[in-house]
Amino acid sequence: MSVHQISIFLENRAGQLAQVTRVLADHEIDMRAISIAETSDYGVLRLIVDNAEKATSVLLENGFILSMTPVSVVAVPDQAGGLAPVLEALAEGQMDVEYMYSLFTHKEGMAYMVFRIDDEERFAALLSAHGISLADKEELGLR
């Protein structure tokens, strides 16, 4: 049930991020989630888009260096305390989160969190045991 995340190498230099968004805009690719991890010299831009395959090919054509990484998306109620049970379940199962960030949808009342976890299967099972399920591509409107 994992979702494809595109990770892109970006040098810390003015205009680098704008180049990525311009390429995606020109090809009418919709970004659903965006996160950046950076050092002083460079960063990794992490994206979830509506059409990962198309985005990958147009970014590669434009000379970007990227990789695809599987991530899990969890739907939680969009209210105070919505995320806590998910992280508590992870803590209980002693699973580490490499990184996480939020994802936008048009669905009322729900918030979505993207998780990068080493063992995705165990993560899914753990959540399921707590009555929490992963969101699939259809639910998120991703191709």
């Binding site: 995340q5 990770s7 190498f9 050092t39 460079y42 960063g43 990794v44 260096i65 990227l66 990068r116």
Partner: peptide, 15 residues
């Protein structure tokens, strides 16, 4: 210059 096979989603790996 960054090379495709040197890139990783993990900053720690790049470092």
């Amino acid at each position: 210059e960054m090379a495709p096979d040197k890139f990783s989603d993990s900053l720690a790996d790049i470092h």
